[in-house]
Simulated assay, not measured.
Amino acid sequence: MREWIPVSTSPKGRLALAAVKEFGTRPFDEVTVAELAAAAKVTTGALYHHFGSKLGLYAFVRADVERRLLDRMEGALAAAGSGSDHSAAVTSALLVGLDFAVREGFLRILGDPPAGTGHDRLAEMLSEHAVPAVPLLGQVLAAAWRAALAAVAQGADPQHARAAIAALRLHVPDCR
């Protein structure tokens, strides 16, 4: 359970909402502290007070957005059931995640690898559910999914990104 849910009218809540919007549509490096503070109608000091830094604010909102993404993807995996085609289940989860990110405008915040940390929860979740279990498969799938989001962020048709994700099939030949 969460420790804190932002109240949108508080300075901390306004900063979180502004950060979700800005980091959702623009790369981390292109968003400035001054822009975030202005969008939230607070001083830059408030940002530093509540989050310590731009990276602290980014990490806070990314964790929230990523948790919402993973909840949806895990739900898609659970709906597919344990006895079904694992490749189809993972592809379904990737499509659910893509649709969520596009619909909510989270193309950049979810399309970019996590900033400031080596911890990639999406890759970890995909590794746990991908069958066959192959080293680095979760990282490769997460990179492909993020590439589809990046393409949409750069103007590609979301349906083309869906088609590319749907074309992914997990198959590992016998390597004996």
Rank of each mutant, 00 (worst) to 15 (best):
Q159H: 13
D120Q: 11
A151C: 12
L149V: 00
W145Q: 00
F28Y: 08
G155D: 03
D85K: 08
S84M: 11
T9L: 15
S53L: 08
R176S: 15
R121S: 11
V96T: 15
G45K: 06
L77T: 05
L98W: 09
E30P: 02
S8P: 14
Y58A: 02
T117C: 03
L47F: 01
R103G: 12
L126N: 04
Y48I: 08
F100K: 10
A76Q: 10
L137Y: 13
A144D: 14
A142W: 09
R103L: 15
A18Q: 07
P27A: 05
D29W: 03
R108M: 14
T32M: 06
G75Q: 06
E35G: 15
P132C: 07
W4V: 14
A153L: 07
E104H: 12
P135W: 11
A148G: 07
P113W: 07
D64S: 13
L136A: 14
Y58S: 03
R67K: 10
Q139L: 14
Q139P: 00
R121D: 09
P158I: 04
A163H: 14
L17P: 02
H50M: 07
L17I: 12
V33C: 10
A130Q: 01
A156D: 05
R146N: 01
L57V: 02
V134M: 13
A34K: 13
H129G: 02
G116Y: 12
A46W: 09
P173D: 10
A76M: 05
P173S: 15
E3S: 09
L168E: 00
L141K: 06
A144R: 14
A19R: 03
L15K: 04
R68T: 00
K12Y: 02
D85S: 11
L15Q: 11
